[in-house]
C-alpha cells in the first residue's frame, strides 16, 4: 500500500511539473512571437551581432 501511495504521489508531482512546464513553454512561445512582431515594427537591430542566447536551452 505504501509503495502504491508513493507511486501515486510521485505521479501527481510529475503531472504537476509537466503542467507547469507546458504552461511556461506556451507562454514563452506567445511572448517571443509578440516580441518578434514588435521588433519588426520598430525596425529593431541588435546593438552587437552575436549568437542569440536561448532561454532555457540545455547544454549537452
Amino acid at each position: 500500500e505504501d509503495e502504491l501511495e508513493a507511486t501515486m504521489a510521485n505521479k501527481e508531482v510529475v503531472e504537476y511539473r509537466m503542467r507547469l512546464l507546458t504552461e511556461w513553454r506556451n507562454w514563452r512561445e506567445r511572448v517571443t512571437e509578440e516580441l518578434m512582431i514588435d521588433r519588426e515594427a520598430y525596425g529593431w537591430k541588435p546593438p552587437v551581432e552575436e549568437e542569440p542566447i536561448e532561454d532555457g536551452e540545455v547544454v549537452e
Partner: peptide, 13 residues
C-alpha cells in the same frame, strides 16, 4: 550543473 534536469524535463527532451 549543466547535466542537472528534472525528470519531466528529461521526458519532454
Amino acid at each position: 550543473y549543466f547535466d542537472f534536469m528534472y525528470e519531466v524535463e528529461k521526458m519532454t527532451r
